[in-house]
């Protein structure tokens, strides 16, 4: 029976597509930074930086009082009042550090700019410094983790109150980066070895993501789960969002890349198929974030 007091957070708090895009870009930038330690490709650094900037633009555009943000930040700094108990504040700080590190990497990858602005040559040196790249990777990884805890700490929405969300975000963010690397291979930006390595990792990640998505639905639908979690998961499984879950997240986002990966591992390499698989994986990662956000409902207080 559908309760009378059923309210979707997307109608009231408005955490919907704008936030889904933000989470998607943060996942790409975050796990892309981890990949950058292994694949030091100039286009990858641009993707990381661009994703971060776009992600931040999306999240700022979502603020209902974005014009007040400079005053808020200024007051916070002047008063030294930081609420480190809030994942959102931790995220703001992590993303700021990540943006600076990504900017250093990007500038270091622009020889034309460095030739004109010699005082920036230190960025190129840092861009090849392993401890710096490790730091970049760690900050990126923690940005992805943060974007998961940001959701799971919103205690008003029982569907989100699970540690599976940060895990899902890390796995799917990694898959998005694998898809981008495969796209790079399709356009001859990286060589065959990168594609071979990433597509093999991608197979394992696809299987892990499928398991994690099903576990998330199972835990939320289980007897004993809060009614709000069950209602949200029911929306995902058999309600208005079922199409997005089964066709978008699982079909396009997981099964298509999985099938292409298996075909390429067993039969032969195919760039057109790889291109389709990459687009499907990236779409699935976005839809996963969107469907989980859109399915969020409050615990009904009355039947």
């Amino acid at each position: 029976m559908t309760p009378v007091d059923l309210h979707f957070q997307a109608d009231i708090a408005h955490w919907s597509w704008t936030i889904a895009w933000f989470l998607w870009f943060v996942g790409i930038a975050g796990m892309g930074s981890v990949a950058y330690y292994f694949v030091r490709s100039k286009p990858l650094s641009f993707v990381i930086f661009g994703s971060l900037v776009l992600g931040l633009l999306f999240v700022v555009s979502h603020l209902s009082r974005w014009w007040n943000l400079p005053v808020v930040v200024w007051t916070m700094v002047v008063n030294g009042h930081f609420n480190f108990g809030s994942w959102m504040l931790i995220g703001v700080l992590l993303l700021s550090v990540h943006l600076v590190l990504a900017a250093v990497i990007v500038i270091g990858n622009l020889p034309g700019l460095l030739a004109r602005l010699g005082w920036l040559r230190w960025t190129a040196r840092l861009g090849n410094n392993l401890p710096f790249l490790a730091l970049f990777g760690f900050v990126g990884f923690f940005c992805t983790i943060y974007s998961g805890f940001l959701i799971s700490q919103a205690v008003g929405i029982p569907l989100w109150n699970t540690a599976l969300i940060p895990v899902l975000w890390v796995v799917s963010g990694s898959l998005a980066v694998v898809a981008i690397l495969e796209m790079f291979y399709v356009f001859n930006v990286v060589d065959h070895r990168v594609s071979y390595f990433s597509s093999r990792i991608g197979l394992g990640l696809d299987a892990t993501k499928l398991l994690a998505v099903l576990a998330f639905l199972h835990v939320s639908l289980a007897v004993g789960a809060p009614a709000g979690a069950r209602l949200g998961a029911t929306e995902m499984v058999s309600g208005d969002l079922a199409m997005m879950t089964w066709v978008g997240v699982i079909g396009i986002g997981i099964l298509v890349p999985l099938a292409v990966g298996v075909y390429m591992a067993l039969v032969r390499d195919s760039k057109p198929l790889l291109f389709i698989s990459s687009i499907a994986a990236l779409t699935g990662v976005l839809l996963l974030r969107a469907v989980i956000l859109l399915a969020g409902v409050w615990e009904p207080l009355a039947l």
Binding site: I12, W15, R65, V72, G156, W298
Partner: peptide, 26 residues
């Protein structure tokens, strides 16, 4: 003065009792 309208308080409240003012965004 300290609110940027992120709506984290809205999703954090288990009672669904906050609403956004359409003019002020509070």
């Amino acid at each position: 003065r300290m609110c940027a309208g992120c709506s984290y308080c809205v999703t954090s409240c288990p009672y669904n009792v906050r609403w956004f003012h359409p003019d002020s965004g509070l």
